[in-house]
Design a protein around this nucleic acid. Structure first.
Lengths: 258, 258
DNA sequence: GCCCCAAACAACGA
DNA sequence: CTCGTTGTTTGGGG
């Protein structure tokens, strides 16, 4: 399951590769999680060109020349592939073939990828667009949530998943069990900066490690949410525990508020 | 807070003392938790005689000769007193004075005792009236509850409180954290028998320790829900922990299902 | 690891 | 301890 930094790089790479390509044909393999009929999607995007591909929250948005958009959520196991022969890809959901003979294939062994044509606009801010005032406002609305549950709640902030929540909290030195209503203002300020810092640095790391990546995930550089590590960079043992129903990695360096 | 066994003995003793006594006057001190006006209660029970006093669930039912009933729930801190001078009792809620000059006083320092004249009939079975088929039926309806929450839920079984739930579960060797849907049939059968056994034996113990009791509670003989004990009768250390929002005492002797 | 929903649970006030 | 209400957590299925 790629998270925001991986998805950001995927979107950037897909945009570079596919921008201005003309969609010559569409093949459907699984439409269970498509919000319209295949005929409708066919009609709307066939013979258009790709105008832009970008990430928003955990979704990759394909914007076509006619202003039509297709939002793709990879869920746990989905992936993008650019191939000349789509037969090489198993567990296909959909394939768009372009006039240059290349195809974009979206696959998913679990079949849980969602495809939404022209979805209703979502006004929950992306994790890269929030500031501390926004966090404080949402904390006032939900003062009793754990910070772990808060950060990964896509109705509050879009884009942070289980792994990066742990990374952010470790970097901000906040225990994942902290109650958001108990966080001092200055800690919220620092958290806000840390969210941006951790995510942007991860994007840079991923670009460095695999510049062309459009599938999979890169996790090797994570400081605590990393089964390969036994200690944080500062030498504290990493604790693995279910918090907010999620496998959570943290250390005693992190202060528990509330 | 007396529980079912204490209340059973209270009812039996009050019945012995007050059966066939004639109500000569009623005094009201706190009618906040009376379901009718004081005038109405006055009108219905003055000059009647007490026909029977019995326990049902956690309530004591006073049945009068005219078939009127008054249900009393002592809540956490209520109590019954039989006195010749009601002035000796603090925190009075109501006092019934009989033709023999004695008065029944119900008091409650917290004022939370409830008095219900002719309440609507409650068809949740009393803890002393259930069988294993009933338990199995209710478990199918709520398979995911913890057994601790299940036993003390007055919408499922009436009469079991926090202390006796612990005693029953210890005696039945079931961990309070067990999920009811995961209990094997034979364990439910045994639990059903254990509920009856623990409650009836407690009634006998209380009668032996204080035959005339109509107030307070007797807890000294409890096996695990007993702050004075550090080990169960079998020598296992007693664990004290919040389960289902209640202070719960249990031991490792008890099997966790689910 | 994702999202959604239902149900259980927790906390609070009356 | 009860009732109701609200908010949060948990678990299952897709």
């Amino acid at each position: 399951m790629p998270e925001l930094p991986d998805l950001t790089v995927f979107a950037s790479n897909l945009n570079t590769i596919l921008k201005n390509k003309e969609v010559k044909s569409i093949e459907f393999f699984n439409t269970k999680r498509l919000n319209v009929t295949r005929e409708e999607l066919q009609k709307f995007i066939n013979n258009t060109t790709i105008h832009e591909i970008r990430r928003s929250g955990k979704e990759i948005e394909f914007i076509f020349s006619n202003d039509i958009s297709l939002f793709v959520h990879l869920m746990l196991t989905g992936g993008f592939y650019i191939v000349r022969d789509i037969q090489n890809i198993k567990f296909k959901i959909i394939a768009l073939t372009f006039s240059d003979g290349n195809s974009l294939v979206i696959n998913d062994p679990k079949g849980l990828v969602t495809l939404k044509l022209n979805p209703v606009v979502n006004n929950v801010p992306d994790a890269l667009d929030i500031d501390s005032d926004y966090l404080k406002k949402k904390i006032l609305e939900k003062p009793k949530m754990s910070i772990k549950a808060f950060l990964i709640d896509q109705k509050i902030i879009r884009g942070i998943g289980n792994a990066y929540a742990d990374e952010i909290l470790w970097e901000a030195k906040i225990s994942p069990k902290s109650i958001v209503g108990k966080l001092p203002d200055e800690v919220i300020n620092y958290l806000s900066k840390t969210i941006t810092k951790v995510l942007l640095e991860a994007i840079e790391q991923i670009k460095k490690i695999n510049p062309g990546i459009i599938s999979g995930e890169i996790r090797e550089f994570l400081s605590v949410h990393n089964p390969r590590r036994r200690e944080s960079p500062n030498g504290y043992p990493i604790i693995k525990e279910k918090i907010a129903s999620k496998t959570t990695y943290y250390t005693e360096e992190q202060v528990l508020y509330g």
